[in-house]
Write a protein that binds this DNA or RNA. Structure first.
Length: 821
RNA sequence: UGGCCCGUCGUCUAAUGGCAGGACACCGGUCUUUGGAACCGGCGGUGGUGGUUCGAAUCCACCCGGGCCAACCA
């Protein structure tokens, strides 16, 4: 509930996402001497949007959480033809506005061009890069496709000296654009397309906004970015998911070039927001085509747009913390952003009265010419801020058209003919007469006020169903209101576009507006302007950046560009939460299938997912090569291993060899209640080995198959329980060693003494009387909790079967009486 | 289709082999001179099938679904 000084959202708990966990782990391992260096690396080719805010909040946030943390602002300006200073300025402004400070750590990739060049030369000298002189199209064709391997360039084996010479001359400007490129020399058949000799440098006779004409070759992202990170001593290079495939080259580069530091890249899911788009390219198009009024159009998700709309930096930060950081593709509900800004403004914004669509009200029993000054607080009690103003009240007023109805829907709580309503901070009035024009439109209400009901005076005792806002006709200030709604009419314009036809998002797609373009889904009602609104006079002298709550209407502030003291223009930042409007919509709109359709698709029709594959048990579908199948047959036959497991072992000869060697070290003692050793070993090799194996081949493990066999033996003969076995395996996978010795050294042998176990179980139950009660009254899931406690007490050594029996006996449930479900 | 990544309430996100929790949304209530706020309560989830384990959201296998990669963009 506490609002932290930086305005974090209540309930947000920064510090638990997977990236922070990695960093914490690294720090615990003593990496980087406790330094945590992140970076926010925008390309200055567009404005920042709220998706960038997520990244900024993450990177700067992490840096701020550590003693030796810092976050660099680095412009990734390696493409002179799309980038310019205007963008570098706007980006700096936006980051600063969001509340972050990069101190002296402002960097430009273009400042590293000389170092990058040197790295390229190093690669050439090592035979790891070459100058390719094919055309762009030839290079593309040579790369192959995802399913067919690429073919080597005819220049791939150019001598080092020739490459060096060519590359030097590329730099010297001797060649036209496209004549040559520098490529890494890796593997044209790599399954990862990015490893098929990616292009490192291209020739661009272009003027760079910072380096001028000093260079005519420019590095590409894949080459430049890791070097920038390395040069700056970045420890954790955090980017979005679409760069996952690039990580392999990132690692290849930093390993093959002499640099002072080895950074690592981690990827998280970028932000997608409902009813808007986050692509800089598409945003640029909306701006250039005039579909919106500029990069700071308040309907845009750009930081400039949000800022002009009136969003606060603290709300955006709170939002970013609320949505979390993970690797699953996410599409966040607009309601979350709106919650963040409302929650922020609710606590800060003074309340004032404004009337968007004025309807005249004449008080027939008000003394001619009389004006009263009513005292009105700026904040409701629960906000807890001080301050009030005097509101002029007279016999000629305006209320909002929406607050009067001569055909009120059920539940309507405002003014109706003959009805009463309270004027906020003022009197109760009754509508005596409705005045209409020739067209039958209501143009005026003639009402009478009750002098006894003056706000604050006496305990009026009157129960009036509604309260509405108003302004005094003679005192109100005219203003223009701009209300904004979602930019698009569908939650995912890109998806809608690709369903409808062409996805204009891929480079190959023609830029022209064929059918199915995301722009087809622009919401025509995203902007509404109310020209004749009125507002109470107290706002006239306020600071231009004052954010208000117009009571019962929404949060607003002056448009920073168009509003002048003579002609006020207010932007609606966000509406108030409006349960009435919601109920109305629900009532009017779809009486569709009774809301019962909350039934999940999975509930009734789980059938469709278990379809075609009737043929036998589920198992490895990919058919094995014949010899592997033969070995699987043999394993199945003479080792007693199930078909599925046999195939898993047989399909990888290294694994199979490891398994066979382990079995020969531990053939297993034949016992009636135990599977043969071969089956135990197979289970361990199949289920437990892979997690500790990582990328390694079984043969590269620091222990041999015989050791695994002995370990399985230790588990089978009850020296170890299964979690002890896994612990030993982890140790072996880390540092090798003999299982028995590890058990000895770590004191892991299983605790099987029933008396001791009983003591432990008793202690656990006594320590958690509430849980015991809950268990007894049916919450059987708690057995896992108790078991967990027992295992913890015994440092994982308790014989779990024994312990469970004891536990159940103590709790009065029998082994047979299944605790489950 | 080759490779990589990802599937937990409607949405976002925790739980790192041991009680499936939080936030937003939604529904209901209390309070209210904002149909606001606050407070209380409710609804609601591990994509599927097998396996390993005393115990699986978590480990293994397969299936299903989604994302990314074939710019001299980033």
């Amino acid at each position: 509930m506490t609002s932290t000084p930086d305005g974090s959202a209540p309930g947000s708990r920064p510090g638990t996402d997977f990236i922070r966990q990695i960093i914490a782990r690294d720090l615990a391992r003593g990496l980087h001497d406790g330094r945590v260096v992140t970076r926010f690396p925008p390309e200055p080719n567009g404005y920042l949007h709220i998706g960038h805010a997520k990244s900024i909040v993450l990177n700067f946030g992490i840096a701020g959480e550590h003693e030796r943390g810092r976050c660099h602002l680095r412009f990734d300006d390696t493409n002179p033809i799309t980038e310019n200073v205007r963008f570098v300025e706007s980006i700096q402004e936006d980051v600063r506005w969001l509340g972050y400070d990069w101190g002296e750590h402002l960097y430009f990739a273009s400042d590293y061009f000389e170092e990058m060049y040197a790295c390229a030369v190093e690669l050439i000298e090592k035979g790891l890069a070459y100058v390719d002189s094919q055309t762009e199209e030839e290079i593309r064709e040579g790369r192959g496709t995802v399913t067919v391997p690429g073919t080597p360039s005819p220049h791939r084996d150019r001598p080092v000296a020739e490459n060096l010479d060519l590359f030097r001359r590329m730099r010297a400007g001797e060649f036209p654009e496209g004549a040559h490129v520098l490529r890494a020399r890796i593997d044209m058949a790599a399954p990862n397309m990015l490893m098929r000799d990616p292009v490192l440098y291209r020739i661009r006779h272009a003027h760079h906004y910072r380096t001028g004409d000093a260079w005519c070759i420019y590095p590409l992202y894949d080459f430049a970015h890791p070097l920038e990170d390395a040069l700056e001593g970045i420890t954790h290079s955090i980017c979005t998911l679409e760069f996952e495939n690039n990580r392999e080259f990132y690692d290849w580069l930093v390993e093959n070039v002499s640099i002072p530091h080895r950074p690592r890249q981690y990827e998280f899911a970028r932000l997608n927001l409902d009813y808007t788009i986050m692509s800089k390219r598409k945003l640029l198009r909306l701006v250039e085509e005039g579909r919106v009024e500029g990069w700071d159009d308040p309907r845009l998700p750009t930081l400039a747009g949000l800022r002009r709309r009136g969003y606060t930096p603290s709300a955006i930060r709170a939002f970013c913390e609320m949505i979390g950081v993970a690797k699953a593709d996410a599409r966040v509900d607009m309601a979350k952003l709106e919650y963040a800004i409302r929650d922020d403004l609710n606590r800060k914004a003074p309340r004032v009265l404004a009337v968007p669509r004025p309807l005249k009200v004449t008080l027939t029993n008000w003394p001619e010419g009389r004006v009263e000054e009513l005292d009105a607080p700026f904040y409701p009690r629960d906000v807890g801020l001080e301050g009030s103003r005097r509101l002029p009240f007279s016999g000629e007023l305006f209320i909002d058209r929406d607050d009067f109805s001569d055909d009120p829907p059920p539940g309507y709580r405002r003014l109706v003919p003959g009805g009463e309503v309270r004027l906020r901070y003022a009197y109760v009035i009754r509508c005596d007469e409705v005045v209409r024009n020739e067209a039958g439109e209501v143009v005026e209400l003639r009402c009478s006020h009750d002098p006894e009901t003056r706000s604050g005076s006496a305990p009026s005792g009157r129960k009036v169903k509604g309260t509405i806002q108003w302004v005094s006709a003679a005192h109100a200030v005219p203003c223009r209101l701009r209300t904004y709604d979602r930019l698009f009419s569908v939650p995912d314009p890109d998806a809608a576009a690709s369903h409808a036809g062409v996805d204009a998002g891929t480079p190959s797609a023609p830029a022209a507006g064929i059918h199915g373009d995301f722009r087809d889904f622009l919401n025509p009602e995203s902007l509404e302007v109310l020209e004749d609104a009125l507002i109470e006079p107290s706002v006239v002298g306020d600071a231009a950046d004052t954010r208000y709550q117009f009571e019962r209407v929404g949060y607003f502030w002056r448009d920073p560009v168009d509003s002048t003291p003579e002609a006020l223009v207010f932007n609606r930042i966000v509406t108030l939460r409006d349960t009435w409007a919601r109920r109305r919509e629900a009532a009017e709109a779809p009486p569709a299938s009774p809301k019962t359709s909350g039934v999940k698709p999975g509930a009734g029709e789980s059938g469709p997912t278990t379809p075609s594959r009737k043929t036998g048990a589920t198992g490895p579908r990919p058919e094995l090569p014949p010899e592997a199948r033969a070995r699987a047959d043999e394993l199945e036959r003479s080792h007693g291993i199930g078909r599925v497991d046999a195939e898993i072992l047989a399909r990888d000869s290294a694994v199979e060899a490891f398994y066979r060697a382990a079995v020969s070290a531990y053939p297993g003692r034949p016992r009636k209640d135990r599977p043969a050793g071969s089956i135990s070993v197979a289970n361990w090799v199949i289920n437990e080995l892979p997690p500790v194996l990582g990328d390694r081949n079984p043969a590269d493990l620091p222990f041999d198959a015989a050791a695994l066999g002995r370990l399985v033996g230790l588990v089978d003969d009850d020296t170890l329980n299964s979690s002890g076995g896994r612990e030993v395996l982890e140790v072996m996978a880390r540092e090798g060693g003999d299982p028995a010795a590890i058990v000895e050294a770590r004191d892991l042998s299983q605790m099987r003494d029933p008396d001791k176990l009983e003591g432990v179980a008793l202690g656990v139950l006594e320590a958690h009387p509430g849980k015991v009660k809950a268990y007894l009254s049916g919450k059987r899931g708690l057995e896992g909790f108790f078991m967990g406690q027992i295992m913890r007490e015994t440092r994982g050594k308790a014989d779990p079967e024994l312990a469970r029996g004891i536990l159940r006996k103590m709790l009065g449930t029998h082994d047979s009486g299944e605790a489950g479900d």
